[in-house]
């Protein structure tokens, strides 16, 4: 599903081409606009924003909004800045991504190389779970997390994200292993290799690309999650998205827009970085999630 360029049969004249480039540039501006607004306004004093200068470059450049957003801004009731919540998100994302990707790899392996009656139906059930509106599980999940004693903790959120992430990770690995030659697996079996040996020695070494896709997809989804974070960890255990929302919505005092913008970039930074470094894999993950082929 890679989008590589190829020779098109369509031919266009010079005027049409100029027009096409113009339109494409305009759309590029449209997509860049909010990012420009966030960056530019996070680097200027508040007075320059409230004076109607949102589109202008800073007259006085300052990184103070960034420092404040990171370490001293009022988030909810405490003036801790976003730093502790950023760490919460890291502590949540790393184990949740690792566990869900490992489970997805094993599931994909079983579902393609050790097929059994009803495996497609089972996979269908796992896949549908990716698309449910999470409102349908919020109430029982709140109860179960309470019963387990991990309500409001990062551990609770890790559990939640693993559970609702394995559908996608299983999908990725299943699609990837489907085209992996089953003869190799059978040959290894005849040579006496066991279930895990085949997985470790034969499938896993060639799973690099799909593991990257899975890790990136899970990382982006879990980092960007809001509803679970807001429902199950709204206090000190809140992830970055919830903290950013609290920062922006806080109704006390002057609205410090420059700090809000700096905070928004901080919240966007990890996923943007992943996108810049490995955008190709990110797109592949998106496409596999939509065009299941």
């Amino acid at each position: 599903m890679a989008i590589s360029s190829q020779d098109t049969a369509i031919r266009t004249g010079r005027i049409t081409r100029t027009f096409i480039y113009l339109v494409l540039m305009l759309f590029a501006l449209f997509y860049m606009l909010p990012l420009y607004v966030m960056v530019v306004n996070s680097l200027k004093p508040l007075s320059e924003i409230t004076g109607g200068g949102m589109m202008a470059l800073p007259q006085v450049w300052t990184i103070e909004p960034w420092l404040k957003a990171w370490s001293t801004a009022q988030v909810g009731v405490q003036a801790t800045g976003l730093k502790p919540y950023f760490l919460n998100s890291i502590l949540m994302v790393v184990p949740a991504v690792a566990i869900s990707t490992m489970l997805g790899a094993l599931n994909g392996y079983v579902l393609t190389k050790w097929r059994f009656k009803g495996d497609t139906l089972l996979f269908g059930f796992m896949l549908f779970a990716c698309f449910i509106p999470f409102q349908i599980v919020l109430i029982p999940m709140a109860m179960v997390l309470g019963k387990l004693g991990i309500s409001g903790t990062t551990a609770g959120l890790v559990l939640v994200h693993v559970v609702y992430g394995i559908g996608f990770t299983t999908l990725y690995f299943r699609n990837y292993y489907t085209v992996f030659p089953t003869e190799l697996v059978r040959a290894a079996q005849i040579d006496g290799a066991g279930f895990f040996q085949i997985f470790w020695r034969i499938l896993l070494p060639s799973s690099g690309p799909i593991a990257v896709v899975s890790v990136i997809w899970q990382f982006t989804n879990i980092w960007n999650d809001f509803i679970f974070g807001a429902s199950f960890a709204s206090g000190n255990g809140a992830p970055m998205t919830v903290a950013l929302n609290n920062l922006v919505q806080s109704s006390t005092g002057v609205k410090e827009f420059n700090i809000h913008f700096a905070g928004a970039i901080l919240a966007a930074f990890p996923t943007l970085l992943v996108y810049i470094v490995a955008g190709r894999y990110f797109v592949r993950g998106l496409m596999a999630g939509s065009v299941k082929g």
Binding site: P34, L35, V37, M38, T220, W223, N224, F226, T241, L244, N245, V248, H260, F261, G263, A264, I265, A267, A268, T271, L272, V274, Y275, F282, L286
Partner: peptide
């Protein structure tokens, strides 16, 4: 697509 809706919403 890589951004959180909270970031998009804030902007």
């Amino acid at each position: 697509m890589a951004l959180s809706f909270i970031v998009t919403g804030t902007a």
